[in-house]
């Protein structure tokens, strides 16, 4: 059985898997911090410049909307390749974790902004009116009504976005960013290592199921 020779012994799998897993979460964690920090205000702006918002501005909305659509229309692999010069400019390298974080953030921010916009649009319009006639300023209404009322939906958006970023990190891993994806490609695919392949697939399935479960739990808790 010549195939067997390619496989890492099961006993060695965890020691390979664990550092890769930590790398994946490092990437996803840093990217999500940027995504939430940039995507939330962007989504708030997108919603409030739309006709449903607190300060409708047609042209601003159209421009933002177009930028976000462009960001969302490229498949991640293409986006990653397309912005290599930008990545190099920003972090000085095009391989490794730092280099993966740039395209992941560029892909994640418009995605999250759209999810935030959708979540805010679900907030009842008359609640917004009520807050305004109660003397709330724009910022007060955004905070105490829009974001607060949409919190369960925002928890859902965060879950979806995190899962997408785990997926993107695996794609980024395929071009040398490290993490689970890198492990799966270099060992599992290039070296026909079935054990590593099975281990990474199972790890990803379990991770994503856990993230979803946690997200659902949070959303339910926040609904009260």
């Amino acid at each position: 059985m010549p195939n067997k020779d390619f496989n890492t012994p099961w006993s060695d799998v965890p020691s390979l898997l664990w550092p890769a897993y930590v790398e994946t979460w490092t990437m996803v964690g840093i990217v999500m911090a940027f995504v939430v920090a940039i995507g939330t205000p962007l989504g708030v702006l997108l919603h409030n410049t739309s006709s449903f918002g607190l300060f409708p501005r047609g042209p601003v909305f159209s421009a933002l909307n177009a930028v976000i659509n462009v960001g969302r229309s490229l498949p991640f692999l293409i986006l990653m390749a397309a912005i290599i010069p930008f990545t190099r400019l920003l972090v000085g390298t095009t391989i490794g974790i730092a280099a993966a974080i740039v395209p992941m953030t560029v892909a994640g921010v418009p995605f999250f902004a759209r999810l935030v916009q959708n979540a805010l649009r679900e907030v009842r319009g008359d609640v917004q009116d009520m807050a305004q006639v109660s003397g709330g300023s724009t910022l007060q209404v955004i905070r105490s009504v829009q974001l607060s009322e949409a919190l369960p939906a925002l928890a859902g958006a965060l879950t979806v976005n995190t899962i997408a970023m785990i997926e993107y990190s695996a794609i980024a891993g395929s071009i040398g960013a490290g993490g689970i994806g890198n492990l799966a490609i270099t060992y599992g695919y290039n070296r026909f290592d079935d054990h590593i392949m099975v281990a990474t697939v199972v790890t990803l399935i379990v991770t994503i199921a856990a993230v979803q479960l946690l997200g659902d739990r949070c959303a339910k808790e926040l609904t009260r």
């Binding site: 609640v127 003397g135 607060s148 009322e149």
Partner: peptide, 15 residues
Amino acid sequence: RRVGVIFQSAPLLRR
């Protein structure tokens, strides 16, 4: 703030 408004179906903050 000088006009209190009561809306149809009382829009309240759910949370």
